[in-house]
């Protein structure tokens, strides 16, 4: 390992100096420990967890907003307008929305940066082969890992691609299956009346559900809150609950529209 001694060596040198000048030995030299640890996998996971959880909070709010579709066009478009006016007059128009957008953008960037850095580290820690690095084809799925846990990375990519597509469709009105419209309500209804739009939305949401099933649990564990076997069980329940809630909450509007109950 070329990198192996990078840290051991300076430490050793420092302790030699310590001895020469009669300073205490052992962990006496801690200069640089924190600045190195900021780039550690542990810190990156924490960044990922925080950014992920911010996105989860956003999704919960977003989901709540989506459900306004049941209150009719007025309410839904009004809500959309409200998002732009919130915070006025303290903030300029769309100010609050932009704050949220910036926070989300930073979260997404941090999340993706950390994801790819850690992905890369895992690859090099397994000679590029991950869990399939053994010659034998037996037990390749491991002993206890869940489907959710080993689809995090590609599942994340699917979610990411979907988010772009989703923004282009419903936020920017750039691609407009079923017909463009200045009314968000109309855009949604137009879009979800088409079977393949609903299907792609469903697939992406299921991927997101899996991502969050493992992601939420993992986020809490990465932040140090998994403190016992009992707590582990609770956190996993929470993760399952959040994942299901978001999955179901987001699926209701498109399915209902597709079924023709809302138009």
């Amino acid at each position: 390992m070329p990198g192996a001694c990078e840290i051991a060596r300076p430490r050793m040198l420092a302790s030699w100096l310590d001895r020469a000048y009669g300073r205490p030995m052992g962990t006496g030299n801690v200069v640089g420990l924190r600045s190195t640890a900021v780039r550690s996998s542990v810190a990156l996971h924490a960044a990922m967890a925080v950014s992920g959880l911010i996105m989860v909070l956003f999704l919960l709010a977003h989901m709540y907003g989506n459900l306004k579709i049941f209150e009719g066009r007025q309410a839904f478009d009004g809500y959309s307008g409200y998002l732009r006016e919130a915070g006025e007059p303290l903030l300029p128009r769309t100010g609050a929305l932009w704050i949220v957008r910036v926070v989300l953008l930073i979260s997404v960037l941090v999340h993706i940066y950390a994801a790819f850095t850690l992905w890369h580290r895992s690859r090099s820690a397994t000679a590029g082969k991950g869990g399939w690095r053994y010659e034998t084809t037996k037990n390749r799925r491991g002993v206890q890992r869940s489907y959710a846990s080993f689809t995090m990375r590609w599942g994340g990519v699917v979610v990411g691609l979907f988010v772009i597509y989703h923004l282009l469709h419903l936020s920017a009105d750039y691609i407009a299956p079923g017909g463009a419209s200045p009314s968000p309500y109309q855009r949604v209804v137009n879009g979800f009346s088409i079977w393949w739009v609903v299907l792609s939305y469903m697939i992406a949401l299921i991927a997101l559900g899996f991502h969050l099933r493992h992601g939420v649990w993992s986020a809490f564990a990465s932040l140090g809150t998994n403190s016992s076997v009992a707590r582990r069980r609770v956190l996993n329940l929470v993760a399952t609950f959040v994942a299901l809630l978001i999955l179901v909450g987001f699926l209701i509007p498109p399915l209902v529209i597709f079924a023709g109950w809302v138009r």
Binding site: A4, S41, H45, V143, R145, M152, S222
Partner: peptide, 14 residues
């Protein structure tokens, strides 16, 4: 741990 080239933990539990 990181300098030795070990990967980060994604809480899989294998």
């Amino acid at each position: 741990h990181d300098a030795e080239g070990f990967g980060g933990c994604t809480e899989i539990g294998e």
